[in-house]
């Protein structure tokens, strides 16, 4: 097994220009059914038309409060959940058109790390069997070769061959998450989706796991879709940031730029909640802090979905749904009417 992603598989079109993963207008609606006949009585807009792209070897962060649809989005691109509509391209291939074997082949290149380190490990299997499962499933290696590869990835994540015959409950949370990462690495994937991968860990352990992920990215040329609600974590990891609110991306742009100068009031609100994050705290004080509960996803507010909580709400907000406006710098967009208005409105 070699580390260089370009050399790994000569069949792959290593076109550095196109992004590794591209999602366009992804939608997932759930019907709420009622009664014996299952009449649909409502629709939950879990994910409502989001688009983003993950460049090769880069990390795209997806942030938002719980229920914003970020985990659903992750499951849509990996086809763990079938989207209602939209388009997903992985390395140029149409993911949503894939069937049985192709989906399986896709999973080999697109692995996932989950939030609950213990919950994602079958308590009745040994570490060797857990990490070796993808190898068996994809018939990459069996027997001796499988064990060798398992030991190799275990060592890559900071565990050792001595852990092969242990069970998950014999490890600490951080170690368990390393096992989960080792499993994701086993088949040498191109993309790893980290769904709140460090949220369940203690802060000091979080840092270790994040550093491990960064190191792996450098050494193996991995791309990450990094989902978290903790902005500090995302800031550390992400090259590009997508902020989600109620199933929609409300702001997107270069990670550092977004942190330095958030354009959407929702992003500002999230950043204001981080202690000591000055640029926003100042602005939030100036404007007042967003309040209130997240509205129900089955009855999203009209117009801008954030208008019920937004401190800067004005007449256009409840009636007109904001598109993603250009936000100055290249690649930066935000769905807020303020960007479309003359400056004085914003100051009012």
């Amino acid at each position: 097994m070699q580390a260089d992603p370009a050399v790994r598989d000569p069949d792959r079109v290593a076109d550095a220009g196109t992004p590794l993963l591209e999602a366009r207008d992804l939608v997932k609606h759930y019907q709420i059914r009622k009664g014996v006949l299952g009449r649909p009585v409502g629709t939950v807009h879990a994910v409502d038309g989001i688009s983003f792209a993950i460049p090769r070897g880069k990390t795209v962060g997806l942030v938002g409060e719980s229920g914003s649809g970020k985990s659903t989005a992750a499951r849509l691109v990996s086809r763990l959940i079938e989207p209602t509509s939209g388009e997903v391209r992985f390395d140029g291939q149409d993911v949503l058109a894939m069937r049985g074997k192709e989906v399986k082949a896709l999973r080999r290149r697109m692995q996932m790390v989950f939030q609950d380190p213990f919950g994602s490990l079958n308590p009745r299997l040994t570490v060797g069997d857990i990490v070796g499962e993808p190898l068996e499933v994809h018939r990459v290696a069996s027997g001796r070769a499988r064990t060798d590869r398992v030991v190799e990835v275990l060592e890559t994540v900071g565990l050792s061959g001595r852990d092969l015959h242990k069970f998950p409950h014999q490890f600490s949370g951080g170690q368990a998450q390393r096992i989960g990462i080792a499993r994701a690495l086993a088949t040498n994937p191109d993309l790893i989706i980290c769904d709140e991968a460090v949220s369940a860990l203690d802060v000091s352990v979080q840092a270790q796991v994040l550093n491990l992920l960064k190191r792996l990215q450098r050494e193996l040329g991995l791309s990450y879709l990094f989902i978290a609600h903790d902005l500090n974590v995302v800031r550390y990891m992400a090259d590009e940031l997508c902020v989600m609110y109620m199933g929609e991306i409300v702001e997107r742009g270069d990670g550092d730029a977004v942190f330095a100068d958030p354009q959407h009031p929702y992003t500002q609100m999230l950043l204001a909640a981080i202690p000591g994050h000055d640029p926003v705290t100042a602005r939030a004080q100036e404007r007042g802090v967003a309040t209130g509960e997240v509205p129900s996803a089955s009855a999203p507010p009209s117009g801008c979905r954030f208008h019920t909580r937004c401190p800067a709400v004005f007449d256009r907000c409840p009636t007109e749904h904001p598109p993603l406006y250009d936000a100055g710098q290249p690649g930066r967009v935000a769905a807020c009417h303020l960007l479309d208005e003359p400056r004085q409105v914003q100051r009012a």
């Binding site: 763990l80 399986k104 999973r107 692995q111 989950f114 919950g119 490990l121 079958n122 499962e133 499933v137």
Partner: peptide, 14 residues
Amino acid sequence: EETYIEAARATGSS
């Protein structure tokens, strides 16, 4: 509903 079932699916397990 356990995460390890989803994890198995994500790995590509039938």
